[in-house]
Design a protein around this nucleic acid. Structure first.
Lengths: 224, 224
DNA sequence: CGGTCCATTGAGCACCATCAAGACTTGTGG
DNA sequence: CCACAAGTCTTGATGGTGCTCAATGGACCG
């Protein structure tokens, strides 16, 4: 079991970098750009897969619904990621919901266009296979961590992953405890207890409503 | 969350059905057939992905290792399934281990051959995308069920899935309780308690070392 | 100053893994 | 065929982890 838990991080080159200029033009004509506000879902679980989406800017949470309607986060996606391709390829409904965590712009690529493009372009198809292999492994790791690892370990991982993106003011760390809890895969209550336990051990500093790492090496040790 | 938990069931047409006669011949020349005994792994987690495998006959358990070396079953594969393609596509190591549960014959397709084949054949690539989308979703369901559902519910599902393949003498139901427990994602002790609790409720019959379903509709209700 | 939202803290408990012992089966050699 | 051994299944007792429900404490804002 590898890392797999935590924040989105930039991936290698775009999926569509292998298209010919002509195909790129066709794609540009067929796709429509749109901007989404936080909380305004891009697509919903169990609705027909009408399109794939090419994220240009923003951060998107991918989750599935539990029995009580609770969110179970499978991963985060960001610029350069393609969303919804699995359902489009499989031809049924979306299995997940894609929720922007911040203002997000993405290109909508209609199902037909996407499928045709993939069918006609072997290099694109192979690239998509690579991408899919990568993401599935990541999701597998994340879900397995949910089964295998304790809340404190998953918390440490998420804090490390979320912290190391930019400099000091952790960029994508949710401000609400409930969102952070869902990202870790626990409840706000348990998260609160966990964080304060880490503070009492001198690993975190929870002053003025923010989370600061005080003892990075201990945190890493917890996450390992 | 759909079914996804349980036994292997036959899938639609073979992955390689879309190859031209010439490519099929090339594949036949490049692949080597081999037979595996139960317990003799086809490939191991964390070893270099040297080949994909085309299962001809048998039943194969796909699992990943927990921290204590314990097995966590991700799925079962059978005739017509291709194994190891994800690691071959991604180009690294296998992320899972493939263990035959019974005598299994499979064709070994060297990495280079498989990759070349997929690269050169758009229809094969698209077919593989479909297969991958399918399996991915299944694994996701299974792991999510592990997080969301109780042991008794998962047990009911596995019993239903394993029972409905053939007629009376459930074919692939593991004889050892430990194997069944791992398939469900629990321990032999908990499984024993669960089964006997189901028996006391009149749903199962555990006479002479076998599991018979006495009240199918209750079992379905538990699994829902 | 009340009100609302959120974080925190407490108490209780459900579920399931673990450890340990006993019951039963199966296999083996005398 | 019996006796013993090894493996497997069962049952009991215990404990840990983390969820739920409920109450409290602050912060921000009208």
């Amino acid at each position: 079991v590898k890392f797999g838990i935590g924040a989105w991080s930039p991936r290698a080159g775009s999926l569509f970098s292998c298209l010919t200029p002509g195909q790129l033009t066709g794609l540009r004509d067929a796709q429509t750009w749109r901007s989404y506000e936080a909380g305004q879902s891009i697509y919903y679980e169990a609705t027909p897969a009408f399109a794939a989406f090419n994220v240009h800017e923003g951060l998107v949470k991918i989750w599935r619904m539990g029995h009580a309607g609770d969110q179970h986060v499978l991963g985060l996606r960001g610029p350069g990621d393609v969303l919804g391709y699995r359902a489009v390829i499989a031809g049924g409904s979306y299995a997940v919901t894609a929720d922007p965590l911040e203002r997000t712009t993405a290109a909508t690529i209609p199902r037909e266009v996407f499928v045709t493009l993939v069918r006609d372009n072997p290099r694109l198809a192979f690239r998509l296979l690579e991408v899919m292999a990568d993401r599935t492994l990541e999701t597998e790791d994340r879900l397995l961590a949910r089964v295998l690892d304790s809340v404190i370990k998953r918390t440490a991982r998420v804090l490390l992953a979320l912290g190391r993106e930019h400099g000091e003011p952790a960029p994508h760390l949710p401000k609400k405890r409930e969102d952070l809890a869902r990202l870790i895969g626990t409840t706000p209550e348990t998260l609160s207890r966990t964080l304060h336990s880490l503070e009492s051990r001198g690993i975190l500093d929870l002053s003025n409503r923010e989370i600061h790492v005080r003892d990075m090496s201990s945190l890493r040790h917890l996450a390992d």
